[in-house]
Design a protein around this nucleic acid. Structure first.
Lengths: 217, 217
DNA sequence: GATGACATGTAATCAGTTACATGATTAG
DNA sequence: CTAATCATGTAACTGATTACATGTCATC
């Protein structure tokens, strides 16, 4: 017995928001779901076929002149029941998979300058993403009176955006910290060459102690 | 030409820290790398075979009486060169995949009580993980004088732990916030039962919302 | 006598990406 | 005439999990 995958529930959730074709889902899977789940169109069409076979969505072929026919999918009663049951099912921890953190683990091998470049680049990337989320949050705050109402579909957008903002802010901050570690290293190497050694060692030590205290945070 | 996968670099990085057998790597992939990359033993043995074929690690079979033979892998010169080059290569953003955030997106369908249960459970899970990271951080702080030395392998442990702590704190906080949204909702429902006057208004509101919900479906 | 640690592998399957395949319409 | 958007699918492949397979020793 084939089970429904997490990705297929993602499709179901999107269709529950409002009926869509495979093509439209391909677009919609970029925002806002794309922030935490992505897929290629081929994967989407397969998922739709599977959900249809399980009776969780219904297909309606809409003839279009001037355009290829559109297959519009609507969630069925069985689909709503399945989605509602799934959405609060206990969730076991997911295996993490972060290439960036893996790099950090092996970064001691790297040229410090290259390390700074990597983490500053990543910081910029995540700050840009953060800004985009914040812009989107501002725009949904205009459309809806914010806080509650948990029972309305748009609450999902709000909740996921909050998550995205927190996560991006946190990772950008960590990237900045990483870059700074290597910049400090480069600073010290530069100072050594200019022969202000003793004083600098003292300063470095003081600085280190202060950061040590901050590290404990 | 077969390329080296991110996972295989993870193995390389572990072996660069110190030589290990496949069995040992299976254990080591739980801590600390397991916090951001996991693998099953079968996957590990395949990866090792591949890395060996590419000349990035070398195998030494150690005969053991009373135990099956152990295959100890050591990183080669070529392996160090490859790892060092990879570690600062520009990294394109990785497709996110978060089942929990997906649930949040569809949570408007759920029974509020079930939603609270889900997010409180997740909060507890992430707080427990946070505590574990903090304990580990405390223990590596005892072994090593903290801040610098970016060039020593243990810096990787420190950096990844910082990342883990930040990430877990952030997600636990978000789970708490989510749970509170639904608790607030339940509180209001509870008041309804005890106070007849407000109840009329709130029920009218609920009815409106339910009608709205059917429309969107 | 059962469970769990030690120890290494192969085979089957599943999830997801990339490549292949087709074809009309619209805007530059 | 070139590229982008609309529109849907299949096939091949890769990355990762699960199941199969084997066997010893130590501890409860």
């Amino acid at each position: 017995m084939q089970t429904i995958t997490t990705f297929e529930y993602a499709l179901l959730a999107l269709i529950a928001h409002h009926p869509s074709s495979g093509y439209e889902l391909t677009q919609r899977l970029k925002k806002p779901i794309g922030f935490f789940w992505t897929a290629h169109h081929s994967h989407i069409y397969n998922g739709l076929t599977h959900l249809e076979a399980r009776g969780l969505i219904a297909r309606e072929v809409i003839a279009q002149q001037r355009r290829p026919n559109k297959h519009l999918f609507t969630i069925t009663e069985a689909g709503i029941v399945a989605l509602r049951a799934w959405v609060t099912m206990p969730l076991e921890p997911e295996p993490p998979r972060s290439g960036l953190t893996l790099r950090a683990y092996a970064i001691w091998l790297a040229d410090p300058q290259a390390a700074v470049r990597l983490f500053r680049q990543q910081e910029a990337l995540h700050l840009a993403q953060l800004e985009e989320y914040e812009r989107l949050l501002a725009s949904i705050k205009q459309e809806h009176t914010i806080p509650q109402d948990i029972n309305l579909p748009w609450f999902g957008n709000y909740a996921t955006l909050r998550r995205g903002i927190g996560a991006e802010r946190e990772i950008a901050e960590w990237c900045r910290w990483m870059a700074e570690q290597f910049e400090r290293h480069l600073d010290r190497a530069g100072d050594d060459e200019q022969a202000a050694q003793k004083a600098d060692d003292d300063n470095a030590l003081m600085r280190d102690q202060q950061e040590q205290r901050r590290d404990v945070l």
